[in-house]
Simulated assay, not measured.
Amino acid sequence: MSTQPHTAIIGAGIVGLAHAWAAARAGHRVTVFERSDKARGASVRNFGMCWPIGQAPEYFAAALRSRELWQEFVRESGAYSRPTGSVHVVEHEDEASVLEEFAKAAPDLGYQVELLTRAQVEESCPGVRRGVARAGLLSRTEINVDPRQALALLPAFLGEKHGVAFHWRTAVTQVREGKLVTASGETHTFDEAFVCSGHDFETLFPEILAASPLRPCKLQMLRTVPQPKGWNLGPMLASGLSLRQYGNFSICPSLSEVKARVAWDMPELDRYGIHVMASQDRFGAIVLGDSHEYGDHIEIFDKAEIDELMLRELRKLFDFPDWTIAERWHGIYAKHYDGPEFRVQALPGVQIATGTSGSGMTMSFGLADRFFAKREATV
């Protein structure tokens, strides 16, 4: 009789698939249950950025481990990937001060970055408008993937390479110790389960999630038509507004000046949590965003005002051959205010794992790997 532990994963978004992969590498027999026919949530509604540069120092190593695992997946699956790196492009003096402060502290924290002059930004970033950049911060650790393609290929990769089984169109309605029940009334047993159901706080363990520091966060995004004649964006781009969004810059004294100026001059950006970034997909289109609305402020209807504000700020710094918008959408993820991971034991042998706070593509592989590695080390 096999002693191989059986692990159930509830949710086939990036967090669930990351845990499935980590459990399989640890020698578990893994079964994934997903209510839809494929991943349809936040995991496919993002920039496709593996973005280590944006992570706070205590999570940077896990982000780099995610990067290694993305590279492994790409090699073995043939998925699209571009190791583009990234450039934060800034136009204000206080933003340039933040970049200088971060670049000075970065080596001691493990980051490898390089300050760029305006001329260097314009030389290395075809997507930056000429004559407006004050400075830039180059990081080479970022990878661009296609989230729609990656989430479509990951299940086949896990099935073929690691024997992971999938139950699609199977909603799990109850999880008990050692047993789960689906909407059709079927019962499945397990040794361990991970509930990775994103921003669904109502179906499983609602009392735990209601008392948690998690809140839903809605973002709006856009995609241009494919750019003409094979035009290449170069590095993925972020603006000075993004300094307000990412934990790595919280160590910089000048960040408070940036936040105060934006709040005073452009309160509409704070109202909707707008910062602007750009990446290029495998078809040559530019993915643009994004915004942040939380909790009770979330509505099912998207706001044209948010799209217009994002485009206003994007056009200040960036320039693409064709700005025609082909797609508009929104996503909702679970925001955790104390880091990129919410993990709690709901029952013996049952863990809730969610709350990657918009960093799922960057952090999920590394966090799941770290969890299983730590546990194996204590056995």
Rank of each mutant, 00 (worst) to 15 (best):
H199R: 02
G163V: 09
I352T: 07
Y337P: 00
V276C: 09
A150F: 05
R82F: 07
D307E: 14
F47G: 02
E207C: 03
V121Y: 05
H88C: 06
L115K: 06
G11V: 06
A119W: 04
L219Y: 03
R67K: 14
L241W: 09
A353T: 13
L158E: 05
G349Y: 07
G240S: 09
M1F: 09
S359Q: 12
A105R: 06
R148Y: 09
F371V: 12
A8G: 10
F342N: 12
E123W: 00
H167A: 13
G127W: 09
Q174T: 10
S254H: 11
T356W: 10
Q120S: 08
G339M: 07
M1L: 12
S97I: 10
E34K: 01
W168A: 13
E327I: 01
V262E: 00
G131E: 00
L367C: 10
Q149I: 03
S36L: 03
A96N: 06
I14M: 14
R35I: 00
E308H: 09
S124W: 01
E192M: 02
L209R: 15
D94Q: 15
L180D: 09
R176A: 13
L109D: 05
V121W: 04
P52V: 01
A368G: 09
A152D: 15
K161W: 09
R169M: 13
C217F: 01
E257A: 08
L311Y: 08
T187H: 11
M266V: 04
R261K: 13
T7H: 04
Y111T: 02
T7N: 03
G136R: 02
A39L: 10
D296W: 05
F201H: 12
A150I: 05
D369C: 11
E192L: 04
S86D: 11
E114I: 00
A373D: 14
F301T: 15
T170V: 13
P213L: 06
T117G: 05
V74A: 13
E68P: 03
C252T: 09
C50P: 00
R315F: 04
G159E: 14
N248S: 14
G136I: 01
A26C: 08
E123Q: 11
L347G: 10
W329I: 02
L64N: 04
A79G: 08
Q55H: 04
I251Y: 07
Q4T: 15
A238Q: 04
L151Y: 11
A165K: 15
D37E: 13
R35S: 03
L311C: 13
A119N: 07
G331S: 08
L69N: 04
V98K: 11
I251P: 05
A24L: 01
